[in-house]
């Protein structure tokens, strides 16, 4: 299988979904990303989620319609096996490149 290179945005969104586990829908994801210091616009998040799903790195399912959402359902996301594989590939690449460079960060 052709390896997929993840962009930074794709990577952080996948990670946020992975961390959330059960209730990974857009609202808490946005909050988590912001809490982690990665601000992005709502539109960018939706676009990223949509694209990741098209690429097969995420899958989604609809929950029950909720009154608090005006009768609309939540779309929950989960990382697919392909997604996990892509994340781990990215991680490997990054760690390999970082190896031995940590000290350089001390004295910028």
């Amino acid at each position: 299988m052709k390896s997929i290179h993840l962009g930074e945005l794709e990577q952080v969104v996948l990670l946020a979904v992975l961390r959330r586990d059960v209730d990974a829908y857009a609202v808490p994801l946005l909050e988590d990303l912001e809490a982690a210091g990665r601000r992005l616009t709502r539109g960018a998040l939706y676009t990223a989620l949509e694209r990741l799903e098209q690429k097969g790195l995420l899958q989604s399912r609809l929950g029950e319609p909720l009154a608090e959402r005006g009768g609309r359902a939540r779309r929950y996301y989960a990382v697919t096996v392909a997604g996990l594989r892509a994340l781990s590939a990215s991680r490997r690449t990054l760690l390999a490149l970082w190896d031995g460079l940590e000290a350089r960060l001390e004295r910028p």
Binding site: A26, R69, G70, R75
Partner: peptide
């Protein structure tokens, strides 16, 4: 506002986005 937004959003993500915004 809802009428307007539902007209303004792309259909593929309409339900999801509107639900999220409603919730918040």
């Amino acid at each position: 506002a809802r009428l307007w937004l539902s007209a303004a959003l792309p259909e593929a993500v309409r339900d999801e986005v509107m639900g999220d915004l409603h919730e918040e």
